[in-house]
Each structure stands twice: as structure tokens, then as C-alpha cells.
Nucleic acid binder design. Structure first.
Length: 556
RNA sequence: AGGGGUAUCGCCAAACGGUAAGGCAACGGCCUCUGACGCCGUCAUCUCUUGGUUCGAAUCCAGGUACCCCUGCCA
């Protein structure tokens, strides 16, 4: 289908893997993409997915899809299905390797008892608030819990009773016994298990105690034989804990954690909380709103998986906080669509044109290329008649300097058809031009001047005789500020009031009545569009603008 | 008693002691029946800063500075 530039450049992870393979540390690599099923995936996750699956693919290893489902209070089946679909849509396949951290709950539980037996874990009875107070601060050591030194047998008994459901939520937790004075807060006796009497989306109600992320993640990696456990920077502080569990438990392998900088994109927000707020407050229309950076939104908008993959490759991977400009993503979309999108004529804001010297009852047809650079994509017939529609923007009574579209007295080419000269206009009561009159040059049939004169401007048009009506949704950036997320100001203040402009009287080529919603089209001189898979009906076409074409004119 | 990170062109990002890749953007120009696409050219004597080591430093050392992350029974 679509092209994909394969300019692969070096990054620190590839270097590490190449080295591990070269030295024989690993014969092949195993990575994993570990989402928590508590929300929908967004473009930031795409970076991680492309990284993990991409690395595995590049080095001939494998990548697991593992749901980090350790908190039933927040997770849902719907998210699991949605995440799987998004990963597949992006073009990756986990094959047999679909896992759930919850599949390891038995083993994790055994390991928790193992720590208790070793005197390295204890049942805490302080409240959450008391635990917080005992934890100390960034610059002060914590205080040990009075329950920290209770006998192994007592811990074991209590933990087993926690598991059997004897205590209510929050009554007790299991803690690792590490160091309340550790400068790394994660080592100040972190919570391992908490009581949550809630059904789990994957394992039902077989448990009422659930492991924390820290107690589940590294061990899950170890169970699966993950060689390179890649996560975002904020987990760097957790690495000593990650290592501590691997060192203190009889795990089958010892994965290594590596961190990279998460994706930040300008003109959007990526936090789950904010996305959720936009959706629930109806500031956008659902999780798949085409303006959202969610994978569902991007997909509905019409971005292609290949474009997203190219984007992830283009931005690279590093360890420094970075902000990627939205224009890079948009450019990747254009690059992909330019290759594969058939060209078509569509008028977004119609202005009626009458060719006065063209017979009223005459209909003609012209051959139009589906892709000027790719004859193999074929051509189609477009019909021409006395009355046409052109873009309002393509006519100017009083043209600015450098304007070379239709102007009174001037010549312009109607793409694939004829050269016409504007001879007059018709106005409404307000003086607004509502109709333009032209004379066509019969000798220019097909668009070329018989005398070889150069016509600078070529504009698109659609025959009034058989144009299809359509609604067109022009999407723009959701926010007016590159960083709506910056502190201090409510990000919603930066919502772009024109993030979607709905045009209800567009006129498109007759042939578009039957296009498939998966087809991405280029409306010549306008941008790339596709039928909205949700709202478009056979008798009521709705097009989404995926991205505009670059425009060197309005930029001036 | 704090800990962990990061600083290379407007935005990303290579470079692993041998004399600053690449992409995007920008700016010139060419081409053009899409002001698109494509093509050509320009774009860091310099790597946050100050010193030091070295024949040689973005890379090593020392001291500054700036920014990010960490005090959930979230992940």
C-alpha cells in the first residue's frame, strides 16, 4: 500500500542491543509493550510501540504485548480490546505472545511469601496517611513503622489472611523491608500488595489483594525472558527497586531496564487526565475525535499507520526531554499520502461559474490522471458543462500582487479542461459576487493553449451538472498554543475555536459517491481527505480533512 | 540527608579522544496543467559555562549554571 522511508539512524538503544548481540550476552532479544488497560492509547504510546516492536523486528527478536493489569479499580476489558486493536492497526503483531501481569499473580504471590520468609517483607497496619507521614521528605529520612519488625510467622499469617479476604480495603498492606532512610524514596519500604475487593477484568474475582507496579513489572519481565525492558524516564528512579526484586527473588532471568524520553507534541495534550476531561466535558466528540492525539482519533482522521511509523522513526529516541513539533507528524502524513492518494477534484466553498459561450445542453468529458507522477494509477473521466463550481478563494475581483488565479479579464486554466477568461460577475443585494461569467477558448481543449501561450494559473472545478454534495470537516490543531499544558494557566484556555470548521455545501466529483471510507484522496490544491467512517452515509457524504497540502502562497 | 537525570543549529538527533552526520523547518533558485510533488544550493570554525589533561576534547577530569523526574495503598 503505502511507502515507508527506511532511513534508520543510530540511537542509544540500538547501540546497546548491537553490543549485547555482538558480545553474546544475548542470542536474540525480547522486548515488550506493557500498557495498563486503563485508557485509550495515544501517539505517545505509538512511540513506545514502534520502539519495542521495531527493535524486535530489526534485530530478529520478538516483542510481547503484556497488559500491566495490577489495579482492577481502574482497568477495564474495553481498554484491553481497544489497545489490541490499536497495536494491530499500527502494523505490529505479537503472535502468540499476549500476556497479562495478572497471569503471574500466583507466582507473584509465592514470591511475596518468599520475601516474608526471608524477613524482607512485612504486613503494615498503619493507614495510608500514617505511611505517608512516616515516609519522610525529599531531604529527611523516613521513620520505621512499628510493625516493621514483627515475626515472620505473624507476617505470613496476616498476609495469608489478607489474601483470603479477611480484611477490608486499605486495612493492611504488604511492604518490602528495605531502608526507610534511603535517599531514593522508592526504597523506603515500598508497598508490595494492597487490598482491593474488586473484580478484575482478566482474572475475575479470584483475588482481593493486588501487587503494585513495582512488584509486578520486573518479575513479569523476568518470567517472560525479556532482555531489554524499555520504559520512560520517570521510571529511572524505580530501577534500583526493579533490581532489588530481581536480586532477592529466585527469578528465571534478569532483564535490564532502559529508559527513554517520552514523546511531547506541540499544540496538543497527552495526559490521560486531560484527554479524559476533554472527552467527558464534550470539548471534543468522543475518544476518536479526529482532533485528538489518541490513536483512535488519528485513525479516524485518516492518518495512516505507515505515516505514524515513519514519524516515530523520524523523531528518534533519546534521553533528553524534547518537544516535537506537530508539523513533523503532519509532514509524515503528507509524505505517505502523496505517494498513494488518488487525486480528485472537489470544491469546498463553491462559487458558480457560467461559461457563456459554451452550449447550455452540451456535456463533455476529460481524462484526468489519478496521480500525475504515477500513470500506473490510471485515470478517470470528469464531466464538463456550461455551469461549474470553482473555489471562492480562486476568484478575486481585486487580486493581491502575485495572485494568479481567476480575475476579471484574466485567463486561467480549468484543470484538465479549458482555458477561460473571466468576463463579468453577478452580485447579490449586498454586493457579494455570487456568480462569475467566463468565455472559454475552444482551442484549448484538454487545457493546453493552441498558440503555446503560458497560463500561469490552474484551478480546480466541478461540473454543476453532476456534482455530488458533501459535507467537509476541516480539522486544525486542537490548541492555539504550542504548549497548552504549561503550568499556571488552564490548558482549556488555549482550545482552538476553529479546530474544526464544517462546510456543508461542498461539491465533489461525481465519482466520489462510491468511494470507500478507507480510501485516502487528495483533493487537488486542498489537501488529503477521506470519508468519515462514522458519520458518512451513501446519500450524505462527509469528508474529513486529514491534512492540508503545503501552501507557499498564503504563507507569503 | 536529599536522590536520579538531561544540556550538540529554530525543532529532533548522530558522533564512543582524531578534527561537528542526517531529517524537519528556514532561505535562495529550477521545474510545474496541483502556488502540491520533485530537483539544486545555502544553513554549527562549533557542542550550556569556566578551567584542566592531551599533539589533538562535543567526547576525559574539576567547578559552575539551567531544566526535568521522585515524598500514590497509580502505572
Amino acid at each position: 500500500m503505502s511507502s515507508e522511508s527506511t532511513t534508520v539512524s543510530s540511537n542509544f538503544l540500538r547501540v546497546i542491543i548491537e553490543d549485547d548481540l555482538a558480545t553474546g550476552k544475548h542470542e536474540s532479544i525480547v522486548t515488550r509493550f506493557p500498557p495498563e488497560p486503563n485508557g485509550y492509547l495515544h501517539i505517545g504510546h505509538a512511540k513506545s510501540i514502534c520502539l519495542n516492536f521495531g527493535l524486535a523486528r530489526q534485530f530478529g527478536g520478538r516483542c510481547h504485548l503484556r497488559f500491566d493489569d495490577t489495579n482492577p479499580a481502574k482497568e477495564e476489558l474495553e481498554y484491553i480490546e481497544s489497545i489490541k486493536e490499536s497495536v494491530r492497526w499500527l502494523g505490529f503483531d505479537w503472535g502468540e505472545h499476549l500476556y497479562y501481569a495478572s497471569d503471574y499473580f500466583d507466582q507473584l504471590y509465592q514470591w511475596a511469601e518468599h520475601l516474608i520468609l526471608q524477613g524482607k517483607a512485612y504486613v503494615e497496619e498503619l493507614t495510608a496517611d500514617e505511611i505517608r507521614k512516616h515516609r519522610g521528605t525529599l531531604v529527611e529520612a523516613g521513620v520505621e513503622s512499628p510493625y516493621r519488625n514483627r515475626p515472620v510467622e505473624e507476617n505470613l499469617d496476616l498476609f495469608r489472611r489478607m489474601r483470603s479476604g479477611e480484611f477490608p480495603d486499605g486495612a493492611k498492606v504488604l511492604r518490602a523491608r528495605i531502608d526507610m532512610a534511603a535517599p531514593n524514596m522508592n526504597l523506603r519500604d515500598p508497598v508490595l500488595y494492597r487490598i482491593i475487593h474488586a473484580p478484575h477484568p482478566h482474572v475475575g474475582d479470584s483475588w482481593c489483594i493486588y501487587p503494585m507496579y513495582d512488584f509486578a513489572h520486573g518479575q513479569s519481565d523476568a518470567i517472560e525472558g525479556i532482555t531489554h525492558s524499555i520504559c520512560t524516564l520517570e521510571f529511572e528512579d524505580h530501577k534500583p527497586l526493579y533490581e532489588w526484586f530481581l536480586d532477592n527473588l529466585p527469578v528465571p532471568s534478569h532483564p535490564r531496564q532502559y529508559e527513554f524520553a517520552r514523546l511531547n507534541l506541540t499544540y496538543t495534550v497527552m495526559s490521560k487526565r486531560k484527554l479524559h476531561e476533554l472527552v467527558t466535558q464534550s470539548l471534543v466528540n468522543g475518544w476518536d475525535d479526529p482532533r485528538l492525539p489518541t490513536l483512535m482519533g488519528i485513525r479516524r482522521r485518516g492518518y495512516t499507520p505507515a505515516a505514524v511509523r515513519a514519524f516515530c522513526e523520524r523523531i528518534g529516541v533519546g534521553r533528553s526531554d524534547s518537544w516535537i513539533d506537530m508539523s513533523i507528524l503532519e509532514d509524515c502524513v503528507r509524505e505517505d499520502l502523496n505517494e498513494c492518494a488518488p487525486r480528485v477534484l472537489a470544491v469546498l466553498r463553491p462559487l458558480k461559474v457560467v461559461i457563456d459561450n459554451y452550449p447550455a445542453d452540451q456535456i463533455d468529458e476529460f481524462e484526468a490522471a489519478n496521480h500525475p507522477q504515477k500513470p500506473e494509477m490510471g485515470s478517470r473521466k470528469v464531466t464538463f458543462s456550461r455551469e461549474l463550481f470553482i473555489e471562492q478563494d480562486d476568484f478575486a475581483e481585486d487580486p493581491p500582487k502575485g495572485f494568479f488565479r481567476m480575475t476579471p479579464g484574466g485567463e486561467v486554466r480549468l484543470r484538465y479542461a479549458y482555458i477561460v477568461r473571466c468576463t463579468g460577475v453577478v452580485r447579490d443585494d449586498n454586493g457579494t459576487v455570487i456568480e462569475v461569467h467566463c468565455q472559454y477558448d475552444p482551442a484549448s481543449r484538454g487545457g493546453s493553449a493552441s498558440d503555446g501561450r503560458k497560463i500561469k494559473g490552474t484551478i480546480h472545478w466541478v461540473s454543476a451538472s453532476n456534482a455530488q454534495d458533501a459535507e467537509v470537516r476541516l480539522f486544525d490543531r486542537l490548541f492555539t498554543d504550542p504548549n497548552p499544558d504549561r503550568g499556571g494557566i488552564d490548558y482549556k484556555q488555549f482550545l482552538n475555536p476553529d479546530s474544526v470548521v464544517t462546510l456543508t455545501s461542498a461539491k465533489v466529483e461525481a465519482g466520489l459517491a462510491t468511494v470507500d471510507s478507507e480510501t485516502r484522496l487528495q483533493f487537488e490544491r486542498q489537501g488529503y481527505f477521506r470519508l468519515d467512517p462514522r458519520d458518512s452515509l451513501p446519500d450524505r457524504l462527509v469528508f474529513n480533512r486529514i491534512v492540508t497540502l503545503k501552501d507557499a502562497w498564503t504563507k507569503k
